[in-house]
Amino acid sequence: MNFKEHIRVIEDFPQQGIRFKDITTLLKNGQMYKAAIDELREKVKHLEIDLIAGPEARGFVVGAPLAYALDVGFIPIRKSGKLPGETIEADYNLEYGKDKLAMHKDAILPGQKVLIADDLLATGGTIQTSIDLIKQLGGEVIGSAFMIELMSLNGRDKLPSELEIITLMQY
């Protein structure tokens, strides 16, 4: 299935020189959204997954339905100050800035196997920070799944070599 036909590219967003890959045009098409989640489910079902973690915000729209499709739990990884319980936090670099991510301290039990799901793999900063948070809680990151990978930013190269990286589309 050609998912790229349903991705809108927005020039110079959120800043000059960025070609933003907008998944909202795929999400609003129910059949394509379902097909994308179904394809990701097929690509990751061989992994022994206990939980799926998704970084805010678009990781929620990929990770939560994927967790549902696989009958596993979902863990939100949020920006600092957004979670109501006790959290752990870590700073990270974005393609176009800096931010801080947080997880509930009780989100993951030691030894649980976690898949990280997000809309986009760019520089790898968000995913590496998510990995670090999960490991702090004793979780084992067994893979990552993305709708899109931006090959020119080499995010894959900055992630652990043993991490299985699954994508639907590459630019």
Rank of each mutant, 00 (worst) to 15 (best):
I108K: 12
D91A: 14
T167F: 02
A36C: 12
R58C: 02
F74M: 07
G30M: 10
K98D: 05
E86P: 05
G30Q: 14
A107D: 01
L133H: 10
K43Y: 04
P76F: 05
G124N: 03
L163A: 05
D106H: 07
V61T: 10
R8S: 14
I116T: 11
K82S: 06
A57G: 10
T24P: 13
A122M: 11
S152G: 10
G143F: 04
V72L: 01
R156P: 02
L94W: 13
F20S: 09
K135F: 01
G125P: 06
D118Q: 03
D38A: 13
M151E: 15
A102E: 15
K105E: 03
L27H: 15
A36S: 09
I77E: 11
I23A: 06
G54A: 06
G59A: 06
D50F: 08
E164H: 14
V141W: 12
R78A: 00
K21C: 13
G63D: 07
N2L: 05
L163D: 09
T167P: 09
S144Y: 06
K113F: 10
L120R: 07
P55W: 05
G143P: 09
L47G: 03
D118Y: 07
L137I: 00
P14E: 02
V61L: 13
K82W: 04
G17L: 05
H6I: 05
Y171H: 04
L133Y: 11
L101R: 02
T25G: 12
N93E: 15
E39F: 03
L159S: 12
A57S: 14
P84K: 06
L150R: 08
D91E: 14
D99Y: 06
G111Y: 09
T25C: 07
G63Y: 01
G30N: 15
G54M: 05
Q112N: 08
T24V: 07
I108D: 11
E149T: 00
T129F: 01
D22V: 00
Q16P: 05
L159P: 10
M1N: 07
E42A: 09
I131W: 02
I88A: 11
